[in-house]
Amino acid sequence: MSDALFQPYARSPLDPLDLAGQAVRPSPENGAWANEVRLLAYLTLRGDSADPAYARAVRTVCGLSLPDAGRYVSGVAGVLLWRSPNECLLLTSRRQAASLRVALVEAFAGLLAEVVDQSGGLTTVYLAGAEQVTVLRHMGGYDFGSLEPGQAIATVFGKTAAVVMRADAHGVHLIVRRSFAAYLWALLARSARPYAFTVGRLPAAGTDPVLCLQEGATVLDRQDRVAV
């Protein structure tokens, strides 16, 4: 290896915005605040949800039953979101992702099923604050007020699509493609402007099944990427 090379580092899609550098502890005056849940791992699971063998394989590996339409389930392995009758998305930690993937590939052997790594292609934005639903209503036409914990749906936000899942009463997660993340963020920040929007420091995970995936998951952190 050439001496020109250095340690690999990973960058999350919103890293160029330096959200971490702007983040503050949100106060009650901040009607809405958000931040990126950086560098989670994402695995797309393909398989017919009506196929019991496939469902069994997912349950064996992830400890999760397949979610119903428009919903998600969560556990130690992460959050499993329904995307279509033959597609689910597993949000998990980078720590667990490789072994989960290998185990799923093994469990899917002989089945009409597949696991596709999307870890580079997706990211998650966490939105919280008293006006979080209002902010979503500025961004899209879905009836966000009706979205309850346990639900995760894909819909249109401005000129892109994203998945929105309600974790608990505190906040929602928006799962978006890497190349649209900056746009979605800009749309969110603009929509939240009347509500004293701020970039907030992500809370300790608590009951939120996505935030708890993040802890310790960013093996390669900010210090590494400034090495260039």
Binding site: A69, G70, S84, Y142, I153, V156
Partner: peptide
Amino acid sequence: PYCKATREEEE
């Protein structure tokens, strides 16, 4: 009929 939900046309 798959999402079992009524949604806006733009979707």
